[in-house]
Amino acid sequence: MIPAPFDYEVAESVDQAVELLGSRDDAKLLAGGHSLIPLLRLRFARPALLVDIGRMDDLRYVRDAGEQLAIGAMTRHNDLQHNPLVQEHTPILSHTAGLIGDPQVRHRGTIGGSVAHGDPASDLPTVLTALDADLVVRGPGGERTVPAEEFFRGVFETALGPQDVLTEIRIPKLGAAGWTYVKFTRRAQDWATVGVAAVVRRTNGTIDAAAIALTNMGPTPVRARAAEGALKTPDDAAGAANVVAQESDPPTDTSGSADYRRHLATVLARRALEEAISR
């Protein structure tokens, strides 16, 4: 790999990272590198300065924060997959992390990097959107919390400002809710052609609440509100799935046309809802 020339600094703390990001125009954070490095290789990304937070192990944690789990931004996908707290309280996240890329990717890639990159084909942003996660951001003005649904703004665009560092992801515990994430790929390690996250809370014959979010069905993760509203009883999976693509604006690319993606989302949503309802 021969990227365009850049300067390189290692940040020892979040505050130092924020400061370094402010020291130059066009500075970029480097976490696990699995999104940024390929862009550097192709010279699509040409930052003047790379601020490496890859050695900041104090951002690599999973903590029980009462109603929520608090997950450090530098937590690797492999950690999410195997961490007992994640497995107990947000098993959908553990399950989804295990579907990302391949073992090498899962050992290097981080949840914070995946979220901050804002790629609509990534799995974790969709799951966090379905889970109503909060994203904790530190910037020059201090710390703030952004709901996942407001965080993603467009393709590779997020609520992060040039000097912001995503530090923590807070996720409500799932409790007894049924869940799943269904991902359709051409090859095992590909990005999702379409992915569907479903979380369903039910009391016997009634659905109390449902959250459905879609991967690669628009410039950001898509919350399928119409389908959520259509899911009133456990028998409504197919009906809800039929309207799951209503809010979406899927791309056409070599993995499939927009029409095919809408169809695929419907099939996958029906399967996901049936699984989530029965779990």
Binding site: R187, Q189, D190
Partner: peptide, 16 residues
């Protein structure tokens, strides 16, 4: 050439 890299030119792996 649209399929300019292994991202969209799909060479299978052993998993496939």
């Amino acid at each position: 050439l649209i399929t300019g890299s292994m991202v969209n030119y799909l060479v299978p792996s052993a998993a496939e």
